[in-house]
Write a protein that binds this DNA or RNA. Structure first.
Length: 591
RNA sequence: GGGGUCGUAGUUAAGUUGGUUAUAACGCCGGCCUGUCACGCCGGAGGGCGUGGGUUCAAGUCCCAUCGGCCCCGCCA
């Protein structure tokens, strides 16, 4: 009699068995994926993390084993001992990786029974609230397990790369100080200091800079970050960064090092070869050509500025927009006869999301255009537009006239929408782009002041420093984002290591000396004790994993994710706490 | 804060212009079956339509509110 677990240990994973093990005795442990009970012979598909193998219970194996096998139901936990054998002639199952073989069971132990699971583990689409409530069962699905396995390999390859390149992993605190600027903080009340709060880090930004001041020279960390903002398909309130910082370097050094990381990761995880160096695009070019700072460059359909051509147009709307400082731009969908009149009208609603008040379109014919605005345009405008866009018969042109911001947003997103709709995107392509020369700060209408584009410690281009007081919006930052297939997977900058420059930036951000002192005093102090030139970058591990696995939601690459309301349907977090807990913290719920 | 969409047996879905006891498939339970692999065959149980109001002779079907899932805008240095 086998003594599973203690003496008769597992010898193989189900999914790893193959024909070379024929006639070997094996011990397997796993879950009953499916059973086919023929009354006589009983087949069970036994599943573990590596895959599925068919195990066979023959009546002539003995009454004990066969009798026990009749009790097996979905998801029972089984241990079996038996012989691998090539399946009888014509009984192969090509759909199964192990379909050439099967295991003839001589001993069986039902290690645990299972309630009937609430859903099946086939490819069927189960609504997400059910999946998330029973996440531990959802995670049994091979598709999700594959994602988490890849995520683990990604983290391992990252650590290997940084260790090989002389980086040191240092842990930084989760209980930190709330800082202004940036995302909303998750707060943690202090019991010992009543009425005071820690904040969970939005990133270890300041700590990694301080580690450079300390002289560690090269730091990395795979670390959780927390931001209390609304969720999206690619955004969770807690997410993981690959965080990096280096001393005595320029942008070039950082970008080179990170390109090496990308190459190493994609080789290790997907066996794909990335060609270096990666292409670059300035922020200004990205916005003007693609309307976004995270352009998907897997396809063309670039935005073309028509303002100069139509500023004196017969079409009044164009003239008015141009006169009031707006712009008129267009994109061209090549040979887009697939788009019906109804589609075109629907797109008007689509750009409205981004603030566009209208969307003009024109179907290019041999001699003229089919377009609501054709009759308003002068002949030379029509030819000018056609030439600027290189438009041919069968193409459709889309125009938006509005403020530069609205035009970029709406055409940038319309471009993406059409790219998907017209199947212009190669799903296997890996299109990396560095975005460089970000503006250091942008004016916020809501805050009525300039705000950091990146963060307040980002170094400006030193030659732009004179603009800091005269035209702050024009100052370029030594910041860079890495974009992959239209998704921002990382971003970073050279930091300010000089107290003077840091003060100038704070003052441009309307952060008074006292405030800056209060919020970042320790950093300002540190900058006065021999801070080396330094800079770094952080990657979004979750988003990288999404792209590598083809996951459509960030929830599919996180073991226990939160819903759009930032709740965990399995544990029921967040939840109320007892009055005693609140009193201990001197907290009172006011609404 | 706002826009959109969905919520009907365990699961996935159908449910006409409001009209008898709310359908189907899979799953589940029982029986039969020694080569299946989405096993097959026979039989059976299971929901009152997210929740709460309202309109109506009559409400999954219409109206209002509310809860929850998803997508998006704002937000995310």
């Amino acid at each position: 009699m086998a003594d599973f677990l203690t003496k008769d240990k597992r010898t193989h994973y189900c999914g790893n068995l193959d024909i070379s093990m024929a006639s070997q005795e094996v011990i397997l442990m796993g879950w009953a994926h499916r059973r086919r009970d023929h009354g006589g012979v009983i087949f069970v598909d036994l599943r573990d993390r590596e895959g599925i193998v068919q195990v066979v219970f023959n009546p002539d194996a003995g009454e004990d084993v066969h009798g026990e096998a009749h009790k097996i139901r979905s998801e029972f936990v089984l241990a079996v001992k038996g012989k691998v054998r090539k399946r009888p002639e014509g009984m192969d199952n090509p759909a199964l990786k192990t379909g050439e073989i099967e295991v003839i069971v001589s001993e069986l132990e039902i290690m645990n029974e299972s309630k009937t699971p609430p859903f099946s583990f086939d490819d069927e689409e189960i609504s997400e609230n059910v999946r998330l409530k029973y996440r531990y069962l959802d995670l049994r699905r091979p598709a999700i397990q594959r994602n988490l396995f890849l995520r683990s390999r990604l983290a391992a390859a990252t650590r290997r790369y940084f260790e090989e390149n002389g980086f040191i992993e240092v842990e930084t605190p989760f209980l930190g100080k709330s800082t202004p600027e940036g995302a909303r903080d998750y707060l943690v009340p202090s019991r010992i200091s009543k009425g005071m709060f820690y904040a969970l880090p939005q990133s270890p930004q300041i700590f990694k800079q301080l580690l450079m001041v300390s002289g560690f020279d090269r730091y990395y960390q795979i670390v959780k970050c927390f931001r209390d903002e609304d969720l999206r398909a690619d955004r969770q309130p807690e997410f993981t960064q690959i965080d990096v910082e280096m001393s005595f370097i320029t942008e070039e050094d950082i970008m080179n090092m990170m390109e090496g990381l990308m190459k190493a990761i994609f080789k290790a995880c997907l066996d794909k070869d990335i060609v270096l160096p990666l292409p670059r695009l300035t922020y200004a070019d990205a916005i003007s050509r693609y309307g976004k700072d995270n352009p998907d460059v897997r396809f063309g359909m670039e935005i073309v500025d028509l303002t100069a051509i139509v500023k004196d147009s017969g079409f009044k709307l164009f003239t008015e927009v141009a006169a009031s400082g707006g712009v008129i731009k267009a994109i061209k969908a090549e040979q887009a006869s697939a788009l019906s009149r109804k589609d075109l009208d629907g797109l008007k609603d689509f750009v409205a999301i981004y603030g566009a008040k209208g969307l003009a379109w024109a179907k290019v014919n041999a001699a003229d255009w089919t377009s609501p605005i054709f009759k308003f345009l002068k002949p030379e405008e029509v030819t000018g537009i056609a030439k600027a866009l290189n438009a041919k018969e069968g193409d459709i042109i889309f125009f938006v006239a509005d403020t530069p911001r609205v035009v970029s947003d709406s055409l940038g997103n319309l471009r993406l929408n059409l790219g998907k709709k017209l199947n212009l995107i190669d799903p296997d392509a890996l299109a990396f782009t560095w975005i460089t020369e970000f503006p250091l700060m942008e004016y916020s209408e809501t805050e009525k002041r300039f705000m950091s584009t990146h963060h307040p410690f980002t170094s400006p281009f030193l030659e732009d420093l004179p603009l800091m007081t005269t035209d702050p919006g024009k100052v370029r930052a030594k910041a860079y984002d890495l974009v992959l297939n239209g998704s921002e997977i990382g971003g970073g900058s050279i930091r300010i290591h000089n107290k003077e420059v840091q003060s100038q930036v704070f003052s441009a951000l309307k952060l008074s000396n006292e405030e800056a002192r209060l919020k970042f005093g320790f950093l300002l102090d540190a900058l006065e004790y021999g801070a080396p030139p330094h800079g770094g970058l952080a990657f979004g591990l979750d988003r990288l994993t999404m792209i590598m696995t083809g996951a459509e939601s960030i929830r599919d690459v996180i073991a226990f994710p939160k819903t759009q309301k930032a709740a965990c349907l399995m544990t029921d977090a967040p939840s109320k706490v007892s009055i005693e807990q609140l009193m201990e913290l001197s907290l009172k719920i006011v609404s």
